[in-house]
Design a protein around this nucleic acid. Structure first.
Length: 560
RNA sequence: CGGGGCGUAGCGAAGCCUGGUAUCGCGCCGCCUUUGGGGGGCGGAGACCCCCGGUUCGAAUCCGGGCGCCCCGACCA
């Protein structure tokens, strides 16, 4: 029973002053969400219906691969978080209870679910397991943004798998790939599954499910048969034209010229004809000099992976002491190991000379300095994968799947006894999905000038029935009957029975974006018909009033 | 964490520089009218001008401090 005259759907004619992202603007205007504080949002009734629709799809697909739904608390004792080393994460909300005991607000639930499994699982016969829940997540984000796209509190489906070994984990992971593929399809999003960073938590493999849209915070790199997060993407670089080199490097005066821009224009070489040096200090305190082409940038995630260590940029005084004057450093003569990006092809380059106000021309890697090679740069437009140029698109991360290995089972003591009676660590995976982001991504992907256009699987209502005609009119009587018929035919129907002008009703209906709008008005009734507008593309149709519900069901089946 | 911007009615804005009755549009309430794309008329309600302190006869406006929010970047298990 959803009559708009009695439903809490506060629409706004103007966008909120502080909103920029399409999903932020439209979800507020359509009356789906309201802000409570920075990164804190209420879901109003219609918005919550969308959220619930996404949740139900995710639940069904998780259950289909044998997932068992449960519920864990948001408030956790600090102790297990200390044990896994995650208590120090800055984003983790920390608090104390009245006795002064340390508590945290969970950002995920590895510690707790692994605790339960550790306590209950004894034998290899108890494995494998897929446990999941939908629960509020709390993260003290440095910068919440764009409505519900990045919030401090949100609901996430997080699933955890527990297996005997790596092969078991791989199998569970593959199941989740299939389940997630189906979820994304069913929700109705355009999406990519991309290779992603395994992050600080280590791990054995990870993918992200990305929904491309303008408001996305991530960049995905795409080529035929290839999809990766820009953070980890690899591609072949465009070759650069290099000037011929001499027998040995030749010093050139470059007073005060420290940027690639300045040096390349002063010496008349392309950016790619320069080598940039990026000194870093590893966890072991060892200093290395990372060298990339002048037109490329170091990718810190790939670099950490290549170094096998976290690192920090070297301080100026360290650079001055160990290598050369900052702004003029280069690989030739540097007293540290050189890590050369693999996109640097053989040839003669311009580099810093490790002397004030001086660069070297004609530096040839190998001949003039020794190096190790690795892929440590961020790919750029123009790069290719298997000969095909890459595309780089912004996207929202809606889901992620991650092979944890024994990262949590070890500190939390989650083990089982194998057939031989030997104690073994449990192998784990974790699998997240954000219904709010899925909803916002759908808004981003399908909105037009008039407003939202929901995929039918997650729309707040299947259709909006608009009656043109006041209390007591024939149109009203007809629409009341049609409303009953549509409900009986299984449609979730929002009935706009307000005393309002046609324009207002149409505008609100298109703003909310239900897949179909059914209009009962004088014009149509004169011909014994009601109008059916397909929201996507605003395609107008009409069906006979007689048997309208069945005819509308027919249209419904053809919708995206 | 660095940079930029903004807090005035439910929403969107003006007023602030140059201190003196708080203004406009939309929305809201009542009556009338209209009923196929945010229609019209008449009447009305609604504001601790973010907070605290200071200057002043007088502060939305000037000064000091605080809080909140947004955007860009950094960060993002």
């Amino acid at each position: 029973m959803t009559r708009l005259s009695q439903y809490f759907l506060p629409t706004e004619r103007e966008p909120p002053a502080d909103a920029e992202a399409v999903s932020h603007i439209l979800m507020v205007r359509a009356g789906l969400i309201r802000q409570v504080g920075s990164g804190l949002w209420s879901w109003l009734p219609a918005g919550w219906r969308v959220h619930q629709n996404v949740v139900q799809i995710v639940r069904e697909e998780m259950n289909a691969i044998g997932g068992q739904e449960m519920l864990m608390p948001v408030l956790h004792p600090a102790e297990p978080w200390r044990r896994t080393g995650r208590y120090d994460i800055e984003e983790l909300f920390k608090l104390k209870d009245r006795r002064g005991a340390d508590l945290v607000l969970a950002m995920t639930n590895e510690e707790i679910v692994t605790g339960h499994v550790a306590a209950a699982v004894r034998s290899y016969r108890d494995l494998p397991l897929i446990l999941y829940h939908f629960q509020t997540k709390e993260r003290d984000e440095p910068r919440p943004r764009a409505g519900v796209l990045r919030t401090r509190e949100f609901i996430m489906k997080d699933a955890y798998t527990f297996d005997r070994d790596r092969e078991g984990l791989d199998a569970q992971y593959d199941k989740h790939v299939r389940a997630y593929d189906r979820m994304m399809d069913r929700v109705g999003l355009e999406w990519y599954r991309v290779e992603s960073d395994v992050g600080m938590m280590g791990g054995f493999g990870a993918h992200e499910y990305m929904a491309p849209c303008a408001a996305g915070e991530n960049d995905v790199v795409l080529a035929p048969g290839y999809a990766a997060n820009l953070e980890v993407a690899s591609a072949e670089a465009q070759p650069v034209e290099l000037p011929p080199g001499g027998d040995q490097p030749e010093p050139v005066d470059t007073p005060g010229l420290t940027t690639v821009e300045e040096v390349s224009s002063a010496l008349q070489v392309t950016h790619g004809g320069l080598l940039k040096a990026y000194p870093v200090v590893l966890e072991s305190d060892e200093m290395k000099l990372v060298v990339v082409r002048g037109d490329h940038r170091v990718n810190e995630i790939k670099l950490a992976l290549a170094l096998g260590s976290e690192f920090r940029p070297a301080h100026r005084d360290e650079v001055a002491e160990r290598i050369g004057p900052p702004g003029f450093i280069g690989p030739v003569g540097a007293q540290v190991e050189i890590l050369l990006d693999q996109a640097v092809q053989p040839g003669a380059y311009v580099t810093g000379a490790n002397q004030p106000d001086t660069h070297l021309r004609g530096v040839e890697p190998g001949r003039d300095f020794k190096f190790q090679s690795a892929d440590v740069r961020t790919v750029v437009g123009g790069d290719t994968v298997n000969g095909a140029p890459i595309r780089i698109e912004p996207a929202i991360e809606v889901g992620n799947i991650f092979k944890l290995g024994t990262r949590f089972s070890e500190p939390l003591g989650a083990t089982y006894l194998d057939e031989g009676g030997k104690e073994q660590l449990i192998w784990m995976g974790s699998y997240g999905f954000g219904p709010a982001r899925a909803a916002a991504a759908a808004v981003e992907q399908y909105a037009d000038e008039q407003g939202i256009s929901w995929p039918r699987a997650i729309a707040p209502f299947d259709l909006e029935l608009v009656v043109l005609g006041g209390e007591g009119s024939e149109e009203r009587a007809t629409a009341d009957l049609l409303y009953e018929a549509l409900q009986a035919a299984g449609f979730d129907t929002l009935y706009d029975d307000r005393e309002a002008n046609p324009g207002e009703k149409f505008a609100d209906a298109e703003l909310l974006g239900c897949p179909l709008r059914v209009t009962v008005g004088r014009k149509g009734l004169a011909e014994g018909r009601v109008e059916v507008q397909i929201r996507r593309g605003r395609e107008p149709r009409s069906v006979p009033l007689e048997g309208a519900a069945e005819a509308i069901a027919e249209v419904w089946r053809g919708l995206p």
